[in-house]
């Protein structure tokens, strides 16, 4: 286990119910700085819910989540402040449809005064360059392909200068030929040392980039370890069963 100060995310006995449905039953998890954790598992296993609990888009029913030293499950924590440091990328991109790419990216930092208008714009242009879309700054989301939208969404999250990035099935809504361009951006991000938690069905991505793979089912973490351990030599029958279906 890494040094305690390196722990970015610490989840203890997290439970989440939707009405009478228990989606997360007892999740404990630690993520250290620079780790790329990939969550896999069948649909309904609670992967996305776990991810959404981390930045409190879903309120935890019980348990504790500490991010960067802030207890986000504590009502008194200023969740908006913590969220500035946690970027999130959604399955359906969720770009602001009424704003062009540049405005999509600069809206939050300018409103929250983390950057001035000029700084935000300069930074946005740099990030667009990095994701290969500098020519799309003035385009509206409806004029972009799925892959381009998702790259803008990643750039928009990076504009806040987060030190953690959450990816909720970022390639699931994409046409197959566009998956590669989004994964490429994510790989680069991982290489640069970003702490990432990724919910995905891209086993190839997990194998190549993950520092740890977590298999979830039925609201529990069933198995975790390095990609080799979990993907190539799974021990749990349920992991073996799942992998036999997706590989």
């Amino acid at each position: 286990m890494a040094d305690k100060t390196d722990v970015k995310i610490s989840v203890k006995n997290l439970k989440k119910n939707f009405g009478s449905l228990e989606v997360l039953k007892d999740i404990s998890l630690e993520v250290t700085e620079g780790e790329v954790v990939v969550l896999i598992g069948p649909s309904g296993s609670g992967k996305s819910t776990l991810l959404r609990c981390l930045n409190q888009l879903e309120k935890a029913t019980s348990g504790q989540i500490v991010i960067d030293g802030y207890d986000v499950t504590d009502k008194h924590t200023d969740i908006n402040k913590v969220r500035k440091n946690i970027g999130m990328v959604f399955q359906h991109f969720n770009l602001f449809n009424h704003l062009n790419v540049l405005k999509n990216m600069t809206l939050a930092p300018v409103h929250l005064k983390t950057l001035s208008k000029e700084e935000a714009k300069d930074k946005a242009m740099q990030l667009l360059e990095r994701v290969g879309l500098s020519d799309k700054a003035q385009a509206y989301p409806s004029q972009l392909s799925g892959g381009q939208k998702q790259r803008v969404a990643i750039a928009r999250a990076l504009e806040m200068n987060p030190d953690i990035m959450l990816f909720d099935e970022p390639t699931s809504a994409l046409d197959p030929e566009m998956v590669g361009e989004v994964l490429a951006v994510m790989k680069e991000l991982a290489r640069d040392g970003m702490t990432m938690i990724v919910v995905t069905h891209e086993i190839g991505f997990a194998r190549e980039v993950a520092s740890r793979v977590i298999f979830m089912e039925g609201g529990y973490i069933i198995e975790e370890g390095t990609p080799e351990e979990v993907l190539d030599h799974p021990k749990e029958p349920r992991t073996i069963d799942f992998l036999s279906k997706v590989l």
Binding site: K81, K84, N97, A108, A157
Partner: peptide, 11 residues
Amino acid sequence: GQMEAGRSLGL
């Protein structure tokens, strides 16, 4: 998702 994206950015 529009609101969620905004909230996730800290708004």
